[in-house]
Design a protein around this nucleic acid. Structure first.
Lengths: 208, 208
DNA sequence: GCGCCCGTATGATTGCGATCATATGACCAA
DNA sequence: TTGGTCATATGATCGCAATCATACGGGCGC
């Protein structure tokens, strides 16, 4: 079951040890607020519960160079857990709410609890897998191909459940909503895709 | 110092414990050979020393749906270390050489050696960071923006050392070599980029 | 020396998606 | 009820990179 980004507050991942969750504090950021800066020593681990944070630097021309756009449901700057300093700045681009863990406790939990350590690294490894799939799609020129790849990757047996707005799917695929609507309509017209509310299913034995 | 993909054999990462490295065996694959299949239980950890492996499935239309293209220097299917089965197939798309670790020993080392565990998760976290930067670039429409973003991200203070072929850089950026040459020439003509053999440097205080 | 291969480079053409504009209908607040 | 907002949808236009074609020079094998 694939769903679009959560519209409200994302819960902490269920593999976090309860003792660690009990240590999490809530922090709110207003739009434009900076959470940390490049080079600062990390003392906390951040989970985005709502809103959006960009990890960025300023380039030689002064422009913002965005490394990452973190929405609700994601951790920030995972390498910082084991690094002496942040690699970049973190800025809220919308009003945001974070769950904040003391870094020392997070690290102690990883070191002391093998089950948590395993789940953490599996979480990281799955994120790698997700990002690689996403990069494959973004490297594709045609919207049609991106749709098909996404359904195959994120759906099951060629069927994708998507209960949110198609505009969010367009954003996930890195295309405009116009392009998405058109490609979906054309895939359906070509008999390659079946559309139902909240569901997209590829029709097999066809030719792309 | 950024360099293009290694043309020969990639060494194992230096954070792997020597005792674990001693357990690595070499395996060669011919082009087209399948290394593992979806659903199989993982018993080994694979590092690509040379060649290229694709992780893929077959979609409803029978076409290959590529999740990942692993070149020399990368591990394969990281989630499999902590999963009961492979998520997809692995096929060599070129003659390849792998370094192969017994999975049980790899896992034991992670569990028993906290320093190795920390380095492994840092390695994963950095890969996440790299992939996110790559996704940002791939989501950009213009080649020019991709070049600038890459130099800012992977270079230092706007300078990128690149001792390999520009065609490899084009592949990394997801553009054709023609498009890359043109964009580099235009950036240089606009006074925004300085080109020297093996080096690209952004010229500051300009307008993009 | 010659031919082949390949990286770098450039010209011409094409096509697809972004952009801009507009339409329709559902939802919500006043 | 009315007006505004927004998601879904579609039409028209434009522009940029892919594609195709070609050129040049360096390296290498015979």
């Amino acid at each position: 079951m694939t769903n679009p980004p959560s519209p409200t507050t994302a819960p902490l991942p269920d593999f976090l040890p309860p003792a660690l969750c009990a240590l999490a504090r809530e922090q709110s950021l207003t739009r434009g607020e900076t959470l940390f800066r490049r080079g600062q020593r990390p003392t906390r681990v951040f989970f985005v519960a709502a809103g959006e944070i960009h990890l960025l630097r300023h380039g030689v021309h002064g422009q913002a160079v965005i490394f990452q756009r973190s929405a609700a449901g994601s951790f920030l700057a995972e390498p910082s857990i084991d690094s002496p300093g942040y690699h970049c700045d973190a800025v809220a681009v919308a009003a945001s709410r974070l769950r904040v863990f003391p870094l020392a406790d997070f690290r102690s939990a990883l070191d002391a609890d093998p089950a948590f350590a395993r789940r953490w690294r599996l979480f990281l490894a799955r994120e790698i897998r997700r990002l690689r799939g996403r990069a494959e799609r973004l490297a594709m020129r045609s919207v049609r191909e991106r749709i098909v790849h996404y359904i195959e990757c994120e759906g099951e047996d060629g069927m994708l459940s998507w209960s949110g707005e198609l505009k969010a799917l367009a954003a996930e695929l890195g295309v405009t909503h116009e392009a998405l609507y058109r490609a979906l309509a054309r895939l359906a017209a070509d008999g390659l895709l079946e559309r139902a509310p909240g569901c997209l299913r590829l029709i097999g034995s066809g030719r792309l």
